[in-house]
């Protein structure tokens, strides 16, 4: 490498590296970041710092223990406060966050969770048919079990839905995914 070329390379690299580092650090990655342009906090602040990581990855509680209607209903439920109380009546009662959960239950107030995953009003998404077809929760929601604050790693837009539905649309495919507009937009 001749000297002028080397100088030029070093100069350009010295310009681009901090710029790209800067970009990488401030570029929104999660849906929440894109929508809010609040980069650095991947998900919204919840009223309680609930750690999915602790409950799923460490304690191996299955998703359906709390979100049990996903298999039978179009919605996957937010667990009623009594479900939190069921364990934390006795477990870790001194932890400050858990004390807050307990206080909600004792005060008979629902916990005002901030919604993370949401489709627009003109999309009718049905959980039960996807669970029934054997689609894992993580296919759409990402690896929630390793998250602390829940965020949306996959922006669930229509192109993304359709790519999967096309793949499973093939005749005789056991999932028989539909690509009809009226499947979701009605």
């Amino acid at each position: 490498m001749s000297r002028p070329v080397l100088i030029r390379f070093i100069l350009i690299a010295s310009l681009l590296l901090p710029a790209s580092l800067c970009m990488a650090f401030f570029w929104p990655e999660t849906t929440h970041e894109r929508k809010t342009n609040w980069v650095g906090a991947p998900g919204p602040t919840q009223p309680i710092a609930f750690y999915h990581h602790v409950h799923v990855n460490e304690l191996h509680i299955p998703c359906a223990y709390c979100h049990w209607t996903a298999a039978n209903s179009r919605y996957a439920n937010y667990p009623p406060v009594e479900v939190c109380w069921g364990c934390h009546k006795n477990i870790s009662v001194t932890h400050p966050q858990i004390a807050r959960v307990r206080q909600y239950y004792i005060d008979k107030k629902p916990i005002p969770w901030v919604r993370v995953n949401q489709q627009p009003g003109y999309v009718h998404f049905v959980h039960s048919s996807h669970i029934g077809a054997g689609i894992a929760c993580a296919t759409c929601h990402g690896n929630v079990g390793s998250m602390y604050a829940v965020y949306q790693p996959i922006e669930m837009n229509m192109g993304w839905c359709i790519s999967c539905h096309r793949q499973y649309q093939k005749k005789f495919h056991p999932y028989q995914a539909s690509v009809d507009c009226y499947t979701c937009h009605y």
């Binding site: 919204p44 937010y78 406060v81 629902p110 005002p112 969770w113 901030v114």
Partner: peptide
């Protein structure tokens, strides 16, 4: 954007 679960 809040979701209020049931208490019971």
């Amino acid at each position: 954007n809040r979701v209020y679960p049931y208490l019971n």
